[in-house]
Write a protein that binds this DNA or RNA. Structure first.
Length: 640
RNA sequence: GCCGAUGUAGCUCAACGGUAGAGCGACUCAUUCGUAAUGAGUAGGUUGGGGGUUCAAAUCCCUUCAUCGGCUCCA
């Protein structure tokens, strides 16, 4: 008899070979009906897995958090089966069909047949049929030899089987379809019904561009209709907030793809927002004792030879030449900062030196990857390089993390940290890496920042911490980064004089907080759907004249607000009050004041917010003070 | 770069081999309005660029530029 420990701690004795599904049935008929898989000794397994040793077992139902991985995987098979039925078994070569965040995909090689979204209806219909047929899904174990024979007409599967180290592989069969798969899967095809095909695209076999391009269908599935609806609504909401649409619509920026692909034009309103972001950033960097600098936009290629960019980054650089001198447009700011560091003898008393620059960098990106403000060919980094002694590293990192926290919390962003350690291909000795990585780790721990370690994911020149922010739709963005660099100080042979009059190599820290200001701006547009906190808005208060009779007094009123330092938009167009409110509302101006007879006679106003609230009988002075405070404190929510 | 889709007025879209249309926006006029759209009129286009097929091309073909979804998630 074998001992099976259940989640409630109870122990059940079963015979060798007793199936998990039978255990479920023993517990209750209801559990059995709802069960889809099990976690056996920490591993996700099928329901018909036999128990062969003492084990801990947890039965998984659709309610468990582990269930989407399972039913989406099964749904991927159902989709593959539908594609097979429609296009004919001999015309489809199956590649892989994994579960991904929020859904799954399957890659097919359909020869000359091109899939398009118009084919979705067909495939979805066939999938519904397969679900309705409620076909039993069965697992079988094969030797690799048997599997190779079974999949002899499926070259991608053969490729996969050859790569598997185990002697045995598993195959899941559902009616006329079988697939090489690790599992686990639902017991039958009818258990989960809510799915939707999302998009079709090309994808290289094994992600390698030298391999054949396959056709990939992205899709998702949920156990309940309302969950699927929620997800589709979220996609819809994200689509509505798309900064590429909102940006031009709100007059923030435009991208003229004929004139300069990947290089945004910032319109007056957008520039106003960028300037507020920069102003905020300057304030905070001043507080943390950084010194702002500016380095040239183009510099001699010899500098880039020395920095290593010529050898490692040339593909992404722009070049220009005059009087036989070849220059490169800077893709990074570090070499420029080093030139400034080297311009003087540096004493240990001068360290740490914190050089900060809104560095505008150009990087060539392949045309296929450009994406609004998120992936561009020119952008501004809030870049800084810190030159310090080894002993100062930890303190400096703590200070950077505190700065990051202060900046992100102003936008209401939550974030997580990732520590990347030494990669196989690295420079510098292991000991230096250990010290540096240790310093990063201690800083994370001392500041009680939760973090995940990405083993071997560091840059070849040093370990790093990346910060990922989560926006209001739950999407994640990598923004801030702190990198230790062992290479640049060597390459440029930079030194400082220590208290024994010896020349020592400083440590160089490379860090950015927004990352790219423009990209961060894009994230903010989507996060706030264009309705930024008041301090960032290009217009903070709209003054709307009730009719042309009040145009003049309304304009004087607006000037009064402007003198208080508020950004005011004056709307005295010849249209109804309702229409003018709508215009201001569409611009997402936080506060609107309708100016008419009442307002011209007293200092009592009615404040309307873009959220649709109206606050009546507000003393003008109180309104001004309140909004000024809201702006000064960079409050996220509106005051009324 | 590669695969697929797309490109028509400032914006959203229609016309799918036979004289390019609508709504919004812009402009003009009337209206003088109290918290999300007053009414009427006017202007606006070598249908992304180039080439071809045809009596005739926004529509079909070729080419080029750009945009969108992807090309990292490993049976």
């Amino acid at each position: 008899m074998l001992k099976v420990t259940l989640p409630d701690g109870s122990i059940k004795e079963v015979d060798n070979g007793y199936k998990v599904s039978e255990i479920a049935k023993d517990i209750s008929e209801g559990l059995f009906r709802n069960s889809i898989a099990a976690i056996i000794n920490g591993e996700l397994k099928d329901l018909d897995t036999p128990i062969t040793k003492d084990s801990t077992v947890k039965i998984i139902t659709l309610k468990d958090p582990e269930s989407p991985v399972i039913y989406r995987h099964t749904m991927a098979h159902i989709m593959a089966q539908a594609v097979m039925r429609i296009y004919g078994k001999d015309n489809v070569k199956f590649a892989i069909g994994p579960v991904i965040e929020n859904g799954f995909y399957y890659d097919f090689d359909l020869g000359d047949t091109k899939l398009s979204e118009e084919d979705f209806k067909n495939i979805e219909e066939e999938m519904k049929k397969i679900i309705k047929e409620n076909i039993k899904i069965e697992k079988s174990e094969l030797t690799k030899e048997e599997a190779l024979k079974l999949f002899k007409d499926q070259p991608y599967k053969v490729d996969l089987i050859n790569d598997i180290e185990d002697d045995h592989v598993s195959v899941y069969t559902q009616g006329d379809f079988y697939d090489l798969c690790r599992g686990p899967h639902l017991p039958s095809t009818g258990m989960v019904k809510q799915f939707k095909l999302l998009s079709v695209s090309g994808a290289y076999w094994r992600g390698n561009e030298n391999n054949k391009m396959l056709q990939r269908i992205y899709a998702t599935a949920f156990d309940k209709k309302d969950k699927l609806d929620d997800y589709i609504n979220m996609l819809e909401e994200a689509r509505k907030r798309d900064h590429r649409k909102l940006g031009p619509q709100l007059g923030l920026f435009l991208i003229d793809t004929d004139v300069a692909p990947g290089m945004p034009f910032f319109l007056p309103r957008g520039t106003e927002v960028l300037n507020e972001l920069k102003k905020f950033s300057r304030e905070i960097h001043k507080k943390y004792r950084y010194n702002e600098v500016e380095s040239p936009q183009i510099m001699n290629v010899s500098l880039w030879h020395q920095s290593g960019h010529w050898d490692h980054y040339q593909e992404n650089m722009y070049f220009t030449e005059k009087e036989d001198v070849e220059m490169a447009v800077k893709p990074m700011n570090c070499p420029g900062h080093i030139i400034m560091f080297k311009s003087n003898v540096v004493s240990y008393r001068d360290l740490p030196i914190r050089m900060f620059e809104f560095g505008k960098v150009h990087r060539f990106e392949r045309s296929g990857v450009l994406h609004g403000l998120f992936r561009v060919r020119v952008f501004t980094q809030d870049d800084a390089h810190i030159f310090c002694t080894k002993d100062q590293v930890e303190t400096e990192i703590l200070s950077i993390m505190s700065l990051i926290n202060e900046l992100y919390s102003t936008f209401g962003f939550k974030y997580e940290a990732f520590l990347s350690t030494m990669p196989e291909d690295h420079m510098g000795d292991v000991k230096t890496w250990d010290i540096a990585t240790g310093a990063l780790k201690r800083a994370l721990e001392d500041s009680e920042t939760p973090y995940t370690v990405n083993e071997g994911d560091g840059a070849f020149y040093g370990p790093k911490i990346d910060f990922i922010v989560t926006d209001s739709l739950g999407r994640k963005w990598q923004c801030a980064t702190i990198q230790l660099d062992f290479q640049m100080p060597e390459r440029f042979d930079i030194n400082y004089v220590d208290n024994n009059n010896e020349l020592l190599r400083p440590v160089m820290l490379h860090r950015a907080v927004f990352g790219s200001i423009e990209r961060f701006f894009g994230i903010l547009i989507e996060n706030f759907a264009g309705a930024f906190p008041t301090w960032m808005m290009p217009e903070q208060v709209s003054v709307i004249a009730v009719s042309e009779k009040y145009n003049e007094s309304a304009s004087l009123f607006a000037q009064k607000l402007e003198k208080e330092g508020l950004k005011v938009s004056l709307n005295i167009t010849n249209s109804t009050v309702g229409y003018k409110i709508r215009e201001e509302q569409m611009k997402k101006v936080p506060y609107m004041i309708v100016f008419g007879e009442k307002e011209s006679e007293s200092d009592i106003i009615t404040v309307r917010t873009r959220n649709g609230n109206t606050a009546e009988n507000i003393l003008l002075k109180d309104f001004i003070d309140t909004v000024k405070k809201e702006i000064a404190e960079r409050t996220i929510e509106l005051s009324y």
